[in-house]
Each structure stands twice: as C-alpha cells, then as structure tokens.
Amino acid sequence: MLSIKNVTKYYGEHRALGDVSFDVPTGCVYGLLGHNGAGKTTLIRMITQITAPDSGQIFIDGERLVRKHIPMIGYLPEERGLYKKMTVKEHLIYLAVLRGISKKEALEKISYWLEKMSIADRENTPIEGLSKGMQQKIQFIATVLHDPKLLILDEPFSGFDPVNVAIVKQEILALKKKGTTIIFSTHRMESVEELCDEITIINRSQNVLSGRIDKIKEDHRQAIYTVKIKADKVNIPFVKVLKERKRNGVLRLDLMVEEGTEITSNALLMELMKYGEIVSFKEKLPSINDIFLKHVKPELNAQD
C-alpha cells in the first residue's frame, strides 16, 4: 500500500527525519511509535503531502505519491479542529467536496455516519454548540467520510473521553475489516497491542525498529516464563528466579533462563515437574511498551 524509501527531511539545521524506510501492507493497522518530536508528524505530513522530503521517495500502490492521491487519504491530525461557526452538515459537506466527492454523495454518507455515531439530530447545529465529545465524533467522521483507502490517525485518542475511545477503536477495526489501511501514530502504547498488526518505532528522527508485532515480540523474547506450581522451593541450574510469591500453597514464579543456555520449554517443564504439581506454565512475552522503552531508552536523556 504505502512504501517509505530513504526519506530525509531537514528544517534548517535541524534534522527531522534521517533516512527512514518501511512498508505498510494493505489492510493492516500500522503503528508509528515514537516520543513527541521524534519525527512521526513530519513523516505523516509528507505522506499527506503537506510537506515534501528533501530526499527519498514515497510510493502509494506502487506509484510515486502525487496530489491526485489526496482523495485516497484520510488524515486526522494531532492538532485538529473544526470551523466553529459552520453547522455539522455544512462542515462535513465542505471537507467532502474539497476531497472530490459530489454533494449528493456526501449527504448520503453524512446521514449514514451521523446515524452510526448517534448524533443524527445535531446535523444543523453550529459546531460551537456541540459538546467536546460530539466535536470529536465530527472530526472522526470528517476524516473517514470519503472512504479513504489509507487512513492516518495522529494521536487519535488524545483528549478523547473513554466512551469515544471505545467507539473509535471499534470503527478502526471495522474499517480495517473493509480493507482500509490504517496508520496509527502515537507515543502511548496502551492501544497499540490491541489495534496494530505492524509497527515502526521512530527515535530521534530514525527508524529503529520495524515489523509485525508478533514477530517483534518473538525476536524480543527473553525466555521468561511465568509458572504456578505446588511446591515450596524451586532451584534449577541456569534458571534465575526473578519473582517469587506464595499464596495458598501455590508458588508463583517468574523464571528467566540465563543467557547462553539453550533449553526448550518442554525441557524446562520437565525440570519443574520434579518439584511438584504444575498449575500453570506460560511464556511471558515482552509488551510493546517494554520493547519501545528498550529501543528509545538510551536516547531518553537527549529528548525533551
């Protein structure tokens, strides 16, 4: 769907992006992770053609990105707003027509979406008369009204109330099902695991990690296992006990196989079985948050 190739951008002396490359496959939710100021927004602004790269290229469906692709894209910026004096309907029509949809088609889609977001009764209300939550819904509708093939959401949940977060998450997944490719940019990791199929982590203007979430987690597995076992003490060579808690005669352990030791989970299980009855055994994969922090931590001091 989207291919970023060796993109570099300078603002004066400041390097906003340095040689960033990655591919976004069709129909996935793609997480773009990074601290504030890492270069996410600069990259998004290049995909939306607000600005252009100094060097490198962006391709969409194999074609060089040009202005005719704009109607394919829906963009909800982090800094987003509405024309306060316009009514809901006027505002939505305005943006839809500018994106190349006929007024008639826009009206049909508007009533569909307003109905779906249960604000159909407000279509003739001036936007300044709406609650903040409703305004957020309008912003989302304005972004997806023209059925974009590529939807870019920059910190979509910042400032959203929890009810709207749930609604928008649901809509994101529904759009993904319909085949929409979604780029989801955030510096908060909570929603990433829930929504994203692939991610790229950008740190200090560079791509430090790209790939499928399951693959990344696999790559970052540290051979840590969570075990519940009916035993008093467990002591296996080459295995470090990270955490130990005992409740109602059940020992809860976080075990880490020491580096340099090759031991399969089956072998470890066999070892454990010698100590008592196993209640549960599970490999603990690192969370995206752990992975993110691991990749950006060395630079953390330089940020902010």
Binding site: Q49, R67, Y75, P77, E79, R80, G81, Y83, R99
Partner: peptide, 13 residues
C-alpha cells in the same frame, strides 16, 4: 481552531 492542518491535507496551502 486547529482546522488548518486538516485543510492543507486536502488542498494546497
């Protein structure tokens, strides 16, 4: 209003 970034993703500044 913060509408401007939405606008210029649709039309040229």
């Amino acid at each position: 209003n913060r509408i401007v970034e939405v606008m210029i993703s649709v039309v040229k500044p």
